[in-house]
Simulated scan of single mutants.
Amino acid sequence: MTMNITDDGSTATTSCGAPSAAVALFRSLGDPARLAILRRLAEGEARVTDLVSCVGLAQSTVSAHLACLRDCGLITSRPQGRATMHALARPELMDLLASAEQLLAATGEAVDLCPTYGTHPQEPTR
C-alpha cells in the first residue's frame, strides 16, 4: 500500500477532501491481522515465525501484511542472521490505537452496529 504524494511533496487529497495519506493509513490499520501484528510488535521485535504463531495465519499471509505495514512506514525490518526482525517504526502509533480504544469505549456499540462497517445482528431464521 502506498501513500499519494504529489510531485511537489504535498499530500494528495481524495475527491471528498480527505488526505489520501490518511485514507491509506487507516486502510492499513483496518485489518484485524495487521492490528494484531502491530500490537505484538509494540512488545518488541519479532520474526515472521513469531508473528505466525501470534496471529495464526500462514507465513505468506503474514509476510504480505508486513509488506503493507512496511510500505506505509509503520514498521521496519532488519536482517539478523538468516532471519529478519520486524519492529514498530513509529511508537506513537500505539498512542493512536489507544485513542481509538477510548473513542470506541465511548461509541463502540454505535460503531459495531454501523450498517456500513460494523457487524450486523443476525436476522432470526424462520
Results as ranks from 00 to 15, higher is better:
L88P: 09
M3V: 12
G108V: 02
L51V: 10
P121V: 04
T11N: 13
P19Y: 15
L25F: 10
L74V: 01
R90D: 13
P79E: 03
C16Y: 05
G30R: 02
A18Q: 14
G30H: 01
A46G: 15
T2F: 11
A22S: 15
L88Y: 11
E109I: 00
P121M: 04
E101I: 02
R40I: 06
D31V: 07
D95E: 10
T125N: 08
A18K: 12
A12G: 12
A33G: 08
L38Q: 09
E109W: 02
Q122E: 12
A89C: 06
E92T: 09
Q80K: 07
A64L: 01
G81V: 08
L97P: 02
E101W: 05
Y117I: 07
E43T: 15
V52F: 04
G73W: 03
L41C: 02
C68R: 06
S77N: 13
P91M: 07
C72L: 10
R70M: 01
M1H: 12
L29N: 09
T84S: 06
G44W: 13
H120V: 01
L104S: 06
T84D: 04
P115M: 05
A105M: 03
D112H: 06
L74H: 04
L97R: 14
L103P: 00
H86E: 07
S99V: 06
P91I: 10
D71F: 00
R27W: 03
C72V: 07
F26Y: 10
I5L: 08
D31Q: 12
T125V: 13
G81N: 04
S10V: 07
A33H: 02
T6F: 02
C54T: 15
I5H: 08
R70H: 03
C72N: 11
S77L: 00
M3N: 12
D7Q: 06
T2M: 08
L51R: 14
R47F: 05
T2H: 05
L57Q: 11
T14R: 15
G30S: 05
L104R: 08
E92D: 14
T6K: 12
I75N: 00
S15H: 15
E43N: 13
L88N: 15
R34G: 03
R90Q: 09
A98W: 08
S20A: 15
P19N: 11
A24P: 01
A22F: 14
C16R: 11
G81E: 09
L25T: 15
E43P: 01
A87Q: 11
A42D: 07
S10G: 02
A46W: 12
A89L: 06
T2I: 10
Q59T: 01
A106Y: 00
A98H: 09
S63Q: 04
P91Q: 07
T61Y: 05
R126V: 12
R78L: 03
T125S: 13
Q80V: 00
H86M: 03
P79C: 04
T61R: 14
T49E: 15
L66T: 01
F26R: 04
A36P: 05
I5A: 09
R40N: 09
T14W: 10
L57R: 15
L103E: 14
L38W: 14
C54D: 15
C114H: 08
Q80F: 01
A89T: 11
G81A: 06
E45M: 08
C114F: 05
